[in-house]
């Protein structure tokens, strides 16, 4: 669940990005490439990452364009056709315990489930990224203050903190999103702070400062480009964790509420049907698993392509 918690965060800074630090990597005689071109080149030759990207793209596209796919209404229940098996005519993946079309519900479920996986990480990136940059760049007391508060929130196991916050605020998608965002902010802050502190000590930052560049200019031109890689890799892992945790919150009744189509909630309501239709009751979990695994594998691919050690 928490692949890099506790691990010391180090970064390979062999190929920094951004001018004037941009050391272009010569590949072959006379060919000059930037860092990001090299990364793109490596990713293009990584079939696993490409395949995962394709699967996720498909999932997101299906979720976004669900109303135009000609699917049956995911909320239309019909007790006459409860728990139809997979492969039934008209219901490719069968029907659930209320006779609603599973395929349609799984695709519509992607809207809420994927959003609940991605949005908390984006929010945490905005808040935690800023805090980490400020802490790392200012150092001293500001760093002390931000990082000690971060330590306190870091001292909770992620699922426990998410459950505790969501449980105290009460059930609901918004509360679940808020809870998971709060869980991820300290994690992103730590990574960003660690990388920023390392970059700040590098000669090219010193040189920029000596030539009169302001704090914002230094952050924009030198720090951001270098922080982006490691933080992106870390954030991709967090999306995979976030998908599992947010569906888990719905699973125990703290996220989406019936009749919403959401994978965790569907997994929960289908639990009573494991005797009658075991295959169907496992389908929503399958979606959570595939989505989470794709983000994990993409993170591995990015890590390799960007030469990042987390």
């Amino acid at each position: 669940m928490n692949p890099s918690e506790g691990a010391r965060i180090t970064v390979e800074l062999g190929v920094p990005a951004g001018p004037p630090a941009a050391v272009e990597v010569p590949v072959g005689p006379g060919v000059q490439r930037t860092y990001w071109q090299t990364v793109g080149e490596r990713l293009a030759h990584d079939p696993v990452t490409l395949a995962c990207g394709f699967i996720l793209l498909l999932m997101v596209a299906a979720a976004v364009f669900a109303p135009w796919l000609g699917l049956p209404d995911p909320y239309h229940s019909n007790s006459a056709i409860r728990l139809l098996p997979i492969g039934s005519p008209g219901h490719l993946l069968g029907t659930d315990e209320l006779g609603r079309d599973m395929l349609s519900r799984l695709i519509y479920g992607g809207r809420l489930s994927l959003a609940m996986g991605i949005i908390p990480v984006l929010n945490a990136l905005a808040v935690g990224g800023t805090l980490g940059l400020v802490a790392g760049f200012s150092g001293g007391r500001v760093n002390m203050l931000i990082m000690r508060v971060t330590d306190v929130f870091y001292a909770f196991p992620s699922i426990l903190l998410a459950v505790a916050i969501a449980g105290s605020l009460g059930a609901g998608v918004a509360n679940a999103l808020l809870a998971i965002t709060i869980v991820f902010i300290p994690q992103i802050t730590r990574v960003t702070e660690s990388v920023t502190t390392q970059i700040r000590a590098m000669d090219f930052v010193e040189a920029a400062r000596a030539s009169g560049a302001g704090a914002f200019a230094i952050i924009r031109t030198h720090i951001l480009g270098n922080v982006l890689g490691p933080v992106l890799v870390y954030a991709t892992v967090l999306v995979s964790v976030s998908i599992v945790i947010s569906a888990g919150l719905s699973f125990i009744g703290l996220g989406a509420s019936p009749p919403a189509a959401e994978w965790g909630l569907m997994l929960n309501t289908l639990r009573d049907s494991i005797f009658l239709a075991p295959a169907i009751s496992l389908l929503p979990g399958c979606m959570i698993f595939i989505a989470s695994m794709c983000f994990n594998l993409i993170s591995d691919g990015l890590r390799g392509a960007m030469d990042v050690r987390l």
Binding site: M1, P3, S240, V244, A247, G248, F251, L267, R271, I274, F275, P278, S281, L282, G285, C286, I288, F289, S292, M293, F295, N296, L297, D300
Partner: peptide, 23 residues
């Protein structure tokens, strides 16, 4: 191992119940 890391453990729990208790 990467499958295990991405596994929603509550789903795994249900799979175990289906295999070892129900089947």
């Amino acid at each position: 191992a990467i499958a295990g890391v991405s596994m929603p453990h509550y789903w795994l729990a249900i799979i175990l119940v289906i295999v070892f208790s129900v089947q």
